[in-house]
């Protein structure tokens, strides 16, 4: 009983661990794609072109960070793109009655939060499976957009509203990319450096074990649905500002691209595993592939084959490798 042995804190240094991680592999892939692109097209290494390319992923990635936390906690939100549609519709309707830019931003964020709260209540309050709940709210939120707009569109956003999606902070550095970076840092801090982040991992790894350890599991998940809704609101502001109009089909199908981005970033769809740097790199990979293929005049749909195959391959290849080694 008294013979206390000294157990080392760690066997491998954090640096060594991160070098062997999924994120570093993905980083190499990103660099590879970057190099390949710059050889393939003379237009690739142009500051303005590269800056334009970031719009491919910044809005999706803002949601992907919150979605990453939600998936790590063991839930999912398929209604994010529908929240964009609803928030954008609400802003568009407000424009018609003369609401100015600060009011529009408030409306966009509030609708996002409200939608997130509805999802969160249905999942944590009533104990329903999030995948079904958010398939339902996905139809509901976008459906409301369709009721309001039908085949019409809202236009006439105030000129200063265009800054969020079209403005540049300095030279080629757009407002969106700055916002993207800021949000990435905030989520990285939340997930990797706070007690809340630890609770997210614990909940996703073993929800019963987390509950039995005194974690307020329901509250953690509710907050994550709120955050995902809020980020959808932020993305709605940027996207609406960039497009300058709102149609009910805005951001159609984004939910699956966002989930793909999160999974590609090394987040386990079963929960408990993943990191924000991984999602950041995945966002760049998807953006670079889209941009590079676009420069080569390869249509976007072919890009989707690459992304779909990548999604399966990133999980399948390590498993095939370990199966091959054990046999």
């Amino acid at each position: 009983m008294t013979t206390s042995r000294n157990i080392p804190d760690r066997l491998r240094s954090p640096l060594e661990q991160s070098l062997k991680s999924w994120e570093s592999l993905l980083f190499l892939v990103a660099i590879g794609i970057f190099i390949a692109n710059s050889f393939a097209s003379p237009y690739f290494l142009n500051a303005w072109n590269l800056s334009d390319a970031t719009f491919n992923f910044t809005e999706k990635a803002m949601i992907a960070f919150a979605m990453a936390l939600l998936i790590i906690s063991g839930e999912i939100d398929l209604s994010v793109a529908a929240i964009i549609a609803l928030a954008s519709t609400a802003m568009g309707a407000a424009v018609q009655v003369g609401v100015g830019t600060p009011g529009l931003v408030m409306i966009g964020l509030s609708v996002g939060l409200l939608c997130g709260a509805v999802n969160g209540y249905l999942v944590t309050g009533l104990g329903l499976p999030s995948i079904v709940v958010t398939i339902g709210t996905m139809s509901l939120y976008r459906g409301i957009s369709f009721i309001v707009l039908g085949d019409q569109a809202f236009r006439g956003y105030p000129p200063d509203f265009a800054f969020f999606g079209q403005g540049y902070v300095w030279w080629v550095v757009s407002f969106e990319i700055v916002l993207f970076a800021l949000i990435a840092v905030i989520y990285a801090i939340i997930l990797h450096m706070t007690n809340f982040g630890r609770a997210v991992y614990a909940t996703g790894n073993n929800v019963t074990g987390a509950l039995f350890s005194g974690i307020r599991v329901g509250r953690v998940k509710f907050i994550l649905f709120l955050l995902t809704g809020l980020m959808s609101g932020v993305a709605a502001i940027c996207l609406t500002s960039r497009l300058g109009s709102t149609r009910p089909s805005i951001a159609l199908g984004w939910e699956l691209e966002i989930v793909t981005m999160v999974v590609l970033g090394g987040v386990s769809i079963l929960g408990g595993l993943g990191s924000i740097p991984g999602v950041v790199i995945a966002a760049f990979v998807m953006g670079l592939v889209t941009f590079g293929l676009g420069l080569l005049n390869v249509p976007g749909i072919v890009m989707s084959i690459v992304i779909g195959a990548l999604l399966i391959a990133v999980i399948a290849l390590p498993r095939l490798w370990s199966m091959w080694r054990t046999h």
Partner: peptide, 20 residues
């Protein structure tokens, strides 16, 4: 017909609540 999507969304949510 633009109501269709919202109605089916509402139906899904009601159904999943009742099933549960």
């Amino acid at each position: 017909p633009f109501w269709q999507m919202a109605i089916s969304g509402g139906a899904i949510i009601i159904a999943v609540v009742l099933n549960a």
